[in-house]
């Protein structure tokens, strides 16, 4: 794509104009649609959205430079997503794969999600073929490594994770035009992982941090989830959920969006149970409303004492 002869039609045309309308590119490539969707569908995550807009702008400008023959190097696009569980890392990775595909930075745009188990083997000579097979599946798309720090286990010097790391690093360097690697995990552990594997840090261009959700954002997320399943919260139910979130946050293993989804699944079960025990005829209104009592029955409200003991 670098020499003028090879890029005849596009380059000749744009060379004649010697200008590219970024705004039009932005609309026509479908990037605008993806970013708008991101804004609409994902509640909160302000810094993440901002960062993705910045990355999208960079990609768009780089593509324009390429069309005018100004850029020759392949951009390094590997990323790390850090944040607590349930903050939307996988969801954003999916959108990112779509974004990269529409801008032509990856050829197919599939997202291959893996963890340590998919990359690291159980005996000598098992790791390399396993890692290479995963990489083959990810070529042309995005490889999303969840909880990437488990690859490196310093406490076991015979651990095969190191082998997977070496293959990954090599591919991240030499096949930048073939696939994009996204590492994801908790912020503090990722930090330690990068410290002990400096090769990764230098090969990753974009570090995106996912903040925890605030309580009102979680309520918004809950309402969005329910709406998708044709449920809604009653006024008192909404208030109960706000209280629930406040308490749930104090307890161990709080996983943001995921905890909310699980809580809603349980409250749907309680609602079904309540309706079933009452019997009689039901309106569609009743069938789709989650009441305060469905949420207040949660053990979070009764276990409060035990929970606070755990905390101290």
């Amino acid at each position: 794509m670098s020499t003028p002869q090879q890029t005849e039609p596009a380059a000749a045309q744009s060379a004649a104009e010697d200008a590219i309308d970024l705004r039009r590119e932005y609309e026509e490539s479908g990037v605008a649609a993806i970013l708008d969707e991101l804004d609409r569908d994902l509640i909160g995550l302000k810094p993440v959205k901002k960062r993705i807009r910045e990355i999208a702008a960079l990609l768009l400008v780089e593509r324009a430079r390429k069309q005018l023959g100004l850029a020759h190097e392949t951009l390094t696009l590997h990323m790390s997503f850090t944040g607590n569980p349930g903050t939307g890392k996988t969801t954003v990775a999916l959108r990112m794969a779509d974004l990269l595909h529409r801008l032509g930075y990856v050829r197919r745009g599939q997202l291959v999600t893996v963890t340590r188990d998919d990359l690291v083997g159980q005996y000598i000579g098992h790791t390399a073929p396993k890692t290479k097979e995963v990489l083959k599946k990810a070529i042309g798309g995005v490889l999303f490594i969840d909880e990437a720090y488990y690859l490196y286990r310093p406490e076991n010097e015979r651990d095969y994770g190191q082998e997977a790391i070496e293959i990954l690093l090599q591919v991240m360097e030499n096949q930048r035009e073939d696939l994009v690697v996204i590492l994801a995990g908790y912020a503090d552990r990722m930090e330690r992982f990068f410290t002990s594997n400096p090769g990764f840090r230098s090969r990753i261009a974009h570090h995106v941090e996912f903040p925890d959700y605030a309580d009102p954002e979680l309520v918004g997320i809950a309402e969005q989830m329910l709406e998708r399943q044709n449920y809604r919260l009653s006024e008192s139910g909404r208030e109960a959920l706000t209280r629930y979130i406040g308490r749930r946050r104090q307890q161990p293993h709080f996983a943001n969006g995921r905890s909310i989804r699980n809580a809603l699944d349980r409250s749907r079960m309680r609602q079904a149970n309540r309706l079933f025990e009452r019997g009689g005829t039901l309106s569609s209104e009743e069938l789709s409303t989650i009441e305060a009592e469905d949420i207040l029955a949660s053990r979070v409200f009764t276990m409060q004492v035990a929970g606070s003991e755990d905390e101290t």
Binding site: R107, Q110, E133, K136, K137, I139, G140, G141, D178
Partner: peptide, 16 residues
Amino acid sequence: ENPMFDVADAKAVIDE
């Protein structure tokens, strides 16, 4: 090697 299942892009096969 093994048949390549779940591969999306021809580059993976060409490399092999």
